[in-house]
Write a protein that binds this DNA or RNA. Structure first.
Lengths: 166, 166
DNA sequence: GTCGCGACTGAGACCTAGTCTCAACTGAAG
DNA sequence: CTTCAGTTGAGACTAGGTCTCAGTCGCGAC
């Protein structure tokens, strides 16, 4: 996994190309994001910064995430919940998600064959793809063994991280 | 395409099984939903009912959609926007979506082979799937010909239907 | 080094989709 | 036709996210 430190100059390069500036807040956020090796929510990030006594406003968190998404360093994903999750992009490892509707766990996977078939469909439909998103909802092995019944896939609520607004 | 009228008793059966009641509001909503042969938003439905001078509150629209989703007659889908879309289920025709990030158009497709590969992955990961969702974002043939550049896939805004709240 | 200015920031108002509450109403079983 | 659990609308509320604006700061030019 890439060293979080290495990502700062990468972001700076992007910012410069756009005539934008690297600020202390942006640096701190990039470091934090690339030290989370998992999906995260905007609010979670805000909370972590607060925990570390690094004062960064919600607006700045969202603005920086938007820039990181534009730069391609961060990806915005839907994980069955009704708000966004983010994940950093290391190298170009595209992957999709198996999402457990019981425990909220996420398993990543990648399948060349599926990717290939998707391209074939796009070709057939004369569609030029730029991005895709495949989620499979269900029950993971652990939860199935425990015999827990899944929630309706449309009502998934995952374990909420401690939230605080304001 | 199934006649909208035919869906009312189907819904009633589901309601009865659950010890719930078929009301005038629910009947009207089911008729409306099954006469929309496309994806729709909750607000859009609310607006259409208002247009027809059928008074149904937002709460009821959301509550009925929830029931329809539970009954399996309606599906809740993410179409790249940051809120839900719905589509009615006719027969059992599962399909996935190609979403044009320029015009907001949606092309449906279905591919047996992709479905099969998904099941294979689930098996390998010991995951019991209940539902899946595959979206491919990109540019449709029409928009490509017009040479329009796509918006960032993460900032897609589709053509908004006339909204009114209250 | 320091100037200048456009980019950036935080605070909090605001927006939107969706949920909840509660008193009044209603479908349907008996 | 009674009864009562389920249902409704109005509007308050919530969560996630966006916008505004006055004050601040990065950084290229000098």
């Amino acid at each position: 996994m890439a060293h979080a430190e290495r990502e700062v100059p990468r972001f700076q390069e992007f910012l410069q190309q756009q005539g934008l500036k690297l600020t202390a807040e942006r640096t701190a956020l990039v470091r934090e994001i690339f030290s989370i090796h998992y999906h995260f929510e905007a609010d979670e990030l805000l909370f972590k910064m607060k925990e570390k006594s690094v004062k960064i406003s919600r607006a700045t968190v969202y603005r920086t995430l938007e820039l990181l998404v534009k730069s391609g360093m961060v990806r915005r994903v839907h994980l069955g919940e009704d708000h966004y999750h983010y994940e950093h992009v290391s190298g170009n490892s595209h992957h999709d998600h198996l999402i457990c509707t019981t425990c909220g766990g996420v398993i990543e996977f990648h399948d060349e064959e599926i990717e290939r078939l998707q391209l074939a469909i796009c070709e057939k439909k004369k569609f030029t793809p730029t991005f895709h998103n495949l989620q499979i909802l269900g029950v993971c092995d652990g939860c199935r063994r425990k015999g827990q019944t899944p929630q309706s896939p449309d009502r998934v609520r995952m374990i909420q991280p401690t939230k605080l607004r304001k």
